[in-house]
Write a protein that binds this DNA or RNA. Structure first.
Length: 612
RNA sequence: GCCGGCGUAGCUCAAUUGGCAGAGCACCAUACUUGUAAUAUGGGGGUUAUGGGUUCAAGUCCCAUCGUCGGCUCCA
């Protein structure tokens, strides 16, 4: 896989349908204006930039004389509430560019926006527009802002108890890292206090599920500043989870005709000159390592290595499709400010595969890949997902290759999506530079969207590496490559799993599937015998022979989200049974060990999400 | 990389205006032998992230570095 999966949850990236222009949207937009008024009263010298509504609230960017503090936010919020309570009307008027310049004479950012509006071709958010729009302003109370609206008619439509300022952050003017960095105040607003409280509760819930917190609590992974930031260290429990996922995927791929390969973590710089990645992406590659006068790179992707395997022998049309798969660890120099937990790291393992296919095989192979990914998601219990077809943006020229080939590949992708009945949408401009792609976007239990796997069609690398196969016509032909990674990266995928399941993994994935808890010391021996039987059928179990009392052990293991706690005392030992307690608090009572084994084996084999 | 916040025992957090670094949990020891979410008592544990500086005196103030959090930018 050469093009990155996105690292961000897509929250906010996709505005919900019907949101733009809705009452909530207008409330938030008006809150942004009221906030700007409050800030201007607080800092009369403030330079105001832009302040739109966003998916979860609104923000406004300011140039201020000093950094804002928590205390400032509280005061600004209090002032906002006072303005709202004053029931101020919002009035719109249309002005000429000259009038606008007069109104905003002391606001340099606004003047720049007016220039853009006057020239046309760009709106106040820097988005392209067809022609010069009408310039309008909105006024409430003492504050007038350059704005196309819409707004509430009167601040009485806003519930002052349903707004809250959330945080301050740096943000570049016009999103340009070369330009001045402003202070952005994020706030949120809802139609009612209850909705605001519900939103804050959801934030708390997300925080409680944060994989960075749970990962440490559950002993899955750790980081070391001595090893380096963005370089996760997998502890035994995390490694078991990850390994279980890998074994599952490896088997599914073997069944689908993929062939395993293994390649080294470094490669010569020339390899990346040939692939073209160095020229385009050396900013995010680690610097070359000099070895005896030759330069080696830590590999930022696996494709070139796999291509060299393709090229290692003459290929015939009979060899195609050739599907090479590897859990390939790659290293990318991510900016330090962008590193987060497992979802954005500097070293990670891609569940990668490259399919070398003939043009005639493209659609069929593409469909097979999509079906494989659907199957994998189904097993994972990821039912709530949709797919995004990333096509080229005809207005941009960042793409390589023949437009006719692009059209052909895009058509192949859309046809494939239609044929397998995929829930998809088309996103223009979301293609990789070398070809169109299909991304899978998963919605977790908290309704947050995450980009997972991706499938990409590539005409570029086969050409750059002069790939060929001998056709049935005894003529050389160029294969097409499909890059694909169902999980995206093991690190990121595990991070998402942790948050989705809140650490309570399905039994087949749980690092520890059952803990055996003796009522008293004299039952340890019996349970060790039981543990042996459970391990013999491949279950991951542990006898807790610590000196804690049974009640405390139950409490601790329940916190570790171990699916089953098997308690045994005199009665159980005598009956050859265990008393089964689930992490959900449910007590199944005593059952013969054999029954427990049969029950759990079936659950593990079916990769069932259930505990009983 | 940039802007801002944070960094005290393994974890969660205390420590007036700069004035002897503490608690709970965890850990270790001893006793208790327990039937479904914390048994009791005792003990050990710190160069307050690291390195400089100001001061009679720094966890507290200043600078740098590292890490981390919220964003921005980037993301093959």
């Amino acid at each position: 896989m050469c093009e990155s999966f996105s690292h961000q949850p897509l929250l906010g990236a996709i505005m919900s349908e019907g949101y733009v222009g809705s009452k909530l949207y207008r409330i938030r937009h008006s809150c942004a204006h009221i906030m700007a008024q409050a800030v201007l009263e607080y800092f009369p010298e403030a330079r105001i930039a832009i302040g739109p509504p966003i998916e979860d609230g609104f923000y406004y960017d300011f140039g201020l004389p000093r950094p804002l503090t928590e205390d400032d936010l509280a005061q600004i919020e209090a002032r906002m509430k006072a303005i709202i309570k004053a029931k101020v009307p919002f009035t719109r008027r249309e002005v000429s560019a000259a009038e606008a310049r007069q109104i905003f004479a002391s606001q340099p950012f606004k003047l720049e926006l007016i220039d853009g509006l006057e020239k046309g071709g760009m709106d106040e958010y820097g988005n392209k527009t067809a022609e010069a729009p009408v310039i309008s302003t909105y006024r409430q109370d003492t504050f007038e802002d350059l704005c196309r609206g819409p707004h509430v008619e009167n601040s009485r439509e806003i519930d002052p108890s349903a707004i809250k300022l959330m945080s301050v952050a740096g943000a570049y003017w016009r999103g340009d890292a070369e330009r001045e960095q402003l202070q952005r105040i994020y706030g949120t607003a809802f139609e009612s206090k209850a909705e605001l409280e519900d939103y804050l509760r959801r934030l708390e819930e997300a925080k409680a599920r944060d994989h960075r917190k749970l990962g440490v609590e559950l002993g899955l992974f750790t980081f070391s500043s001595l090893v380096g930031k963005g370089l996760p260290l997998w502890k035994p429990k995390g490694a078991i989870l990850r390994d279980t996922l890998e074994r599952f995927l490896r088997q599914a791929q073997l069944d689908a005709g993929y062939l395993p390969v293994v390649t080294p973590h470094i490669g010569k710089l020339d390899l990346y000159h040939t692939s073209g990645h160095y020229e385009k992406y050396n900013d995010s590659m680690y610097k070359p390592i000099d070895v005896d006068g030759e330069e080696f790179m830590l590999k930022p992707m696996n494709c070139p290595h796999h291509i060299e395997i393709y090229k290692s022998e003459p290929r015939s049309f009979r060899d195609l499709p050739l599907r090479l798969a590897e859990f390939g660890t790659v290293y990318r120099y991510e900016q330090s400010g962008e590193l987060t937990g497992l979802t954005r790291v500097r070293g990670f393992t891609v569940d990668d595969a490259h399919l070398f296919v003939s043009p005639e095989q493209l659609e069929e192979e593409f469909i097979a890949v999509v079906k494989l990914i659907q199957y994998i998601f189904e097993v994972m219990g990821f039912t709530d997902f949709r797919a995004r077809v990333g096509t080229r943006d005809p207005l941009k020229d960042k793409y390589v290759g023949d437009p006719a080939l692009w059209d052909q590949a895009t058509k192949a992708i859309i046809d494939a999506a239609d044929k397998v009945g995929l829930n998809y949408f088309v996103a223009e401009g979301e293609a990789a530079f070398y070809g169109p792609k299909l991304d899978f976007i998963f919605r977790d239990v908290l309704k947050r969207e995450w980009q997972l796997g991706t499938v990409q069609v590539d005409y570029n690398l086969p050409q750059r590496f002069q790939l060929e196969y001998m056709g049935s016509d005894n003529q050389p032909h160029r294969p097409i490559m499909i890059h694909r990674a169902p999980f995206g990266s093991m690190e990121r995928f595990v991070g998402i799993l942790i948050e989705h399941f809140a650490g309570a993994f399905p039994v087949w994935l749980a690092p520890l599937q059952a803990v055996l808890i003796p009522v008293a010391d004299r039952h340890v021996e019996y349970l060790q015998g039981v543990a042996k039987r459970l391990r013999a059928v491949g279950l991951r179990v542990q006898v807790d022979d610590g000196k804690e009392r049974m009640n405390n052990k139950i409490r601790l293991w329940q916190g570790q989200k171990v699916p089953y706690m098997l308690v045994a005392g005199d009665r159980d030992a005598e009956a050859g049974a265990v008393s089964v307690r689930l992490r959900t608090n449910e007590d199944l009572g005593a059952m013969p060990v054999e029954d427990f084994i049969n029950k759990v084996r079936a659950i593990v084999e079916n990769k069932s999400q259930a505990l009983v």
